[in-house]
């Protein structure tokens, strides 16, 4: 595609094909931006539309703008959008249910009326004589833009610069949070933890006492009960904790039995282990991570030691 072609007064077949294909894509992208439930998808659709528009800029002889569109808009601005989306929460899907009564109908009415009137206006304006940018772009598009920008529009340009600086400062001021009190030292934080009666030592790691070391498997206490503390709170919230205590106990019991058979021993020990497993079944059906549950575990541990 040569310069003359792109900036011609009339369009080639190639440009027509490009317009109809990419135009469809642009409209679909725009609709997607508006209608997608998740804002990330909206952002991606918007990015697509912007790239298509960049192509259209190029096709219209605005080479500099086409590049800027891709670099600044699709690159920087959309990245900023995604960044904020991450901050705000990327996974939440918006409800598209309308809460304001009659809003949807009003928007449909106004949108249709506005669109039809706008298109009718453009249609009736009778713009069919296109001068084309052949002459204007003769000395190069960027050079031409620069000439206007630094002569005719230099004042606006400078003002825009000031605007950008102001915006940067404003963004900093807006997002900056003034610290209202002194930052706590490590010692103070530790004292605070003690005062609040929280768990002081590091939380137990998952899977340490079991034969698994995946993060979603709670570690087992010495008596074989799973400890909820060892699993990440997020996983606990989601109910994604895999309890392997029963299998582990069953394995242990089988090992004991086999050992016993091998040694020719029939003993109370095996029964004790089995009894422990039965008790465990009962408890794990209830909420196992409550304080009472854990306290009960401790009691039981002591009982067992006493029995021994």
């Amino acid at each position: 595609m040569t310069t003359t072609l792109l900036a011609a007064a009339s369009t080639s077949t190639g440009e027509a094909v490009q317009f109809w294909i990419l135009g469809t894509v642009a409209v679909l992208g725009a609709l997607g931006t508006v209608l997608m439930k998740r804002s990330v998808h909206s952002a991606l659709c918007l990015a697509g539309t912007m790239i298509v528009l960049a192509v259209f800029y190029l096709a219209n002889g605005a080479y500099f703008l086409g590049i800027v569109q891709i670099v600044v808009y699709t690159g920087a601005v959309m990245m900023l959008f995604l960044f904020v989306l991450m901050l705000v929460g990327v996974t939440a899907a918006d409800s598209l249910k309308e809460t304001i009564k009659g809003q949807r109908w009003l928007v449909a009415l106004c949108g249709l009326g506005f669109g039809i009137l706008l298109i009718a206006g453009i249609g009736s304006a009778g713009v069919d004589t296109f001068v084309g940018l052949g002459e204007a772009n003769a000395g190069g598009n960027v050079q031409g833009l620069a000439r206007s920008l630094f002569t005719e529009y230099v004042f606006a340009f400078e003002i825009t610069g000031a605007l950008l600086v102001t915006a940067a400062v404003a963004a900093m001021v807006l997002t900056h949070r003034e610290r209202t009190e002194r930052r706590l030292t490590q010692r103070e934080l530790a004292e605070q933890r003690v005062r609040e009666g929280k768990h002081l030592p590091p939380l137990p790691a998952p899977g340490v006492y079991a034969r698994h070391n995946a993060v979603d498997i709670p570690g087992l206490l010495p008596d074989g009960t799973p400890s909820e503390l060892t699993v990440n709170a997020t996983l606990r919230e989601r109910g994604q904790v895999r309890d392997v205590s029963r299998e582990a106990l069953a394995d242990l019991a089988a090992l004991e039995r086999r050992t016993g058979e091998y040694l020719g021993r029939n003993g109370t020990d095996t029964r004790a282990v089995r009894g422990a497993a039965d008790v465990r079944d009962d408890v794990s059906d209830d909420a196992p991570d409550t304080d009472e549950g854990r306290a009960g575990d401790g009691d039981r541990d002591r009982d067992r030691e006493a029995a021994k």
């Binding site: 009339s10 369009t11 642009a26 259209f56 069919d128 296109f130």
Partner: peptide
Amino acid sequence: MNPVNYLFLAAL
């Protein structure tokens, strides 16, 4: 194709 189509697209 008339380049005015770009304007229609813009309106849309």
